Simulated assay, not measured.
Amino acid sequence: MKERTFNFSAGPSTLPVEALEKARDALFDFAGTGIGIMEISHRSQEFSAYILEVEANLRTLLGIADNYKVLFLQGGGSSQFFMVPMNLLLDKGKKATYLNTGVWSKKAIAEARLFGEVAVGFDGSAEGFHRVPRPDEFTVSEGSEYLYYTSNNTIYGSEYSYIPQTETMLVCDMSSDFLSRPVDVNRYGLIFAGAQKNLGPAGVTIVIIREDLLERAPLSVPTMLRYKTHADKGSMFNTPPVVNIFVAGEVLKLLKKSGGLEAVQQRNMEKAALLYEVLDSGDYYRGYAERESRSLMNVSFNLATPELESKFVAEALAAGMSGLKGHRDAGGCRASIYNAFPKEGVERLAQFMTDFAQKNPA
C-alpha cells in the first residue's frame, strides 16, 4: 500500500486510519448481516441500534444533558444558516445578534436577514478578519432571541478561546472545532457542526438543541426544515446519511478510547504549538490571525510574495504534504491539523518550513 499523504486540507479532512479500515470492512458486511453499510436499511434492527450508540457516545464525550436533543441531519453546516433563523427567529418583530468574524458568519448573517432583524454585535471585516472579539468587545442588541457566533474560522485561522458571556441564549456554529476540546453544552441553546473536519465525511451535520426550542418554529416552516420533525423521529423522518453516521460512530469510539476531549485538546495544543513556534521564530512567515485569536485547528500564514507561496505549496506536495494552499479570501498558506491529523505530519511540516526558509531567502 502506498504511504499515505499528509492531508492538510481544511475539509474534507484527515480521518483516523482505524475508522477508515472499519468503514472499508463495513462496505461488505455491516454488523454481521452480510449486507454492506451502503446497502443496509436505516430501519433495520442493526442500524437502529448503531445510531443510538453513536448518540450515546456523543452525549458521553460532550456531557450532553437529557433536555437536549441530538440530531443527525443533511445539508451541511450551510443549511443551518437558514434553519436556525427559520426555527428560532421567523416571527414578526423578532431579532438576533450575530458576531461577524469571517466568511461563514457573514453568510449566516445574510441568511438570517431573510427571516428577521439582525444586529451585528462585532464586525471584523474592516480589519480583514484577523481576530475574534475580546470578551468585552462585542455587544448584544436588546431584545435579541439569541447571540450567534462561529467558534473557529477555518479561512483566517482564528478561534474563540472563550464562551461569550451573555444572558442571551447562545447559538454556535462549531463546524471546524467540534470535539476538539471540552464544551459546556448547557451554556447553549443550539450547537451545530458539519462533520467533515473532526467527526467524519461530508454529508452529515450534527445539531444539538435544547428541547424547549423545538416548539418555536411557526407553522409556515416546511416540515423537513423543522428541528421538531427530526427530533420526534430520532433523525429517521427520512433516510439519514447512513454511511456518514457509521464513520462518525467509529470516530467517536476512538475519541472515547483515546482519553476523551481533555486528552484531545492537549494533543491539539501540542500540535499547533509546533507550527506557531516556527511562525514566531522570525519574520519569514507571517501568521494571519493575531496571537490572542489563534486557532488550534487551522494555522494560516503568508510568505513574502505570492510566488514564494506557490513554490512552498508545490515543494510541500512533492514532499508528501497536500492541501497547504490558503483560501482565496486570505491567500497565503494554511495547515489544517484537526483531531485525526497525526503529530508526525505536523513535525514534518515544521521541519519543512524551517528548511524552506533557509533555502529560499525572501
Rank of each mutant, 00 (worst) to 15 (best):
E127R: 07
D173I: 12
H130D: 08
E111G: 12
V140L: 07
E127S: 12
S125F: 08
E111H: 15
F138D: 00
L114G: 05
T154C: 14
L114T: 02
R113S: 07
M174N: 08
R131Y: 04
D177E: 14
D123T: 07
D177N: 15
M174Y: 13
G157A: 10
R131K: 14
L147V: 11
E127P: 03
M174L: 14
Y149S: 02
I109H: 02
T139V: 09
F115E: 06
T168E: 06
S161H: 12
E117Q: 12
G143H: 08
N153W: 03
V120K: 05
Y162W: 10
S144V: 03
G116I: 03
G116V: 02
A110R: 15
E127Q: 11
G143T: 09
Y146W: 10
G143C: 08
S176V: 12
I163E: 03
F129D: 00
N153C: 14
S125C: 10
D177R: 09
G116R: 02
N152W: 02
Y146Q: 02
R131G: 00
L179I: 12
S158A: 11
C172S: 14
T139D: 04
E142P: 10
G124K: 00
G121K: 00
A112Q: 01
S158Y: 01
Y148F: 15
S151A: 13
G157N: 04
E137R: 07
T168Y: 03
Y162E: 06
Y160G: 01
V120P: 00
D177Q: 12
I155Q: 04
R113D: 05
E111R: 14
L114M: 10
S176I: 07
I109F: 03
G121N: 02
E167D: 15
Y162L: 06
N152R: 06
N153H: 12
F115R: 01
S158Q: 13
V132W: 00
Y146K: 01
E111D: 15
F178M: 11
I155E: 05
S161G: 13
E137N: 10
G121M: 01
F178C: 11
S151P: 04
L179K: 05
Q165N: 13
A110N: 13
C172Y: 01
T168V: 15
T150I: 12
M169H: 07
